[in-house]
């Protein structure tokens, strides 16, 4: 159960090797979460599990999860619920950034990337929402991105998938209204991780830990959108109204 101040007992991370997903889980453990399940491709994430145990988690489970296999997602959620009991927070953290130039040159790889970043989230998100609705409470934390607020030339394959995901998450939250469950949409800008190391940092870059702290604040205060850093909310407002001729020329 989530308590009045946003602390929870159990956390499921879909994409348990994601540095951001892991940082969120670690923060929630430090705030009192006892049980975490890491759903990862291959079913093993010993380093991540060790880190969470060190942070104070009493139980850490690792289970197989393939974001690209939508048919398996309901079963993954059922297995996680079998291990954890109620799913207080589900973090949908999996994703693929890729190299824009390479993706543009390889349509098949680009489609695969979009499949992970959008289609995978659609099936996993719906499966998670069904569980949360049934248990009458819980938060699905969806890692969207500033890149999806207005899609940019510099990363439009990734950005388009995130824009789709963001829209999906908003609709899902509306669908869950009154069910006790809800969706929290996280929109970080550039986050310094291994996944993003090959991309030059954008202004207002954040660390996974800053994302985790913002998510914890959001859980406590019941936010629907979490911007990291929070100034991005204002930046996004500007982005949305920039004329196309200027927008097209943005380098990053």
């Amino acid at each position: 159960m989530r308590n009045a101040l946003g602390a929870v007992r159990s956390v499921l991370v879909l994409g348990g090797r994601s540095e951001i997903g892991l940082a969120i889980a670690e923060r929630l453990v430090r705030d009192g979460a006892r049980a975490v399940a890491l759903a990862v491709r291959g079913g093993r994430a010993p380093e991540a599990a060790a880190r969470l145990r060190e942070a104070g988690a009493a139980e850490v489970h690792e289970l197989e999860f393939d974001a690209d296999a939508p048919a398996s997602h309901a079963a993954v959620l059922a297995r996680a619920a079998g291990l954890l009991g109620d799913l207080d927070v589900v973090v949908a953290a999996f994703g693929h950034l890729g190299d824009q130039a390479a993706l543009e040159a390889d349509p098949v790889a680009a489609a695969a990337s979009a499949h992970t970043n959008l289609t995978g989230h659609v099936s996993a998100g719906l499966a998670a929402a069904a569980r949360l609705r049934e248990q009458g409470h819980g938060v699905l934390v969806v890692l969207s991105s500033m890149a999806g607020v207005r899609v940019r030339r510099a990363n439009f394959v990734y950005g388009a998938a995130k824009a789709g995901l963001d829209g999906f998450a908003q609709g899902l939250d509306d669908a869950l209204y009154g069910s006790g469950a809800r969706v929290m949409i996280v929109r970080p800008g550039y986050v310094r991780t291994k996944m993003s190391a090959h991309v030059p940092a954008a202004p207002f870059a954040a660390t996974p830990r800053q994302v985790a702290d913002a998510v914890a604040d959001g859980l406590r205060l019941g936010w629907r959108y979490v911007w990291v850093p929070s100034v991005l909310r204002s930046v996004a407002a500007v982005f949305r109204v920039l004329p196309r001729s200027v927008w097209r020329r943005l380098r990053r």
Binding site: M1, N3, A4, R133, G136, H137, G178, G180, A181
Partner: peptide, 17 residues
């Protein structure tokens, strides 16, 4: 019927019949 319930503090609502 299914409703959203919370306590007097109005924190952490959950749904039940």
């Amino acid at each position: 019927r299914r409703v959203l319930l919370s306590g007097w503090g109005r924190t952490a609502p959950t749904a039940a019949r």
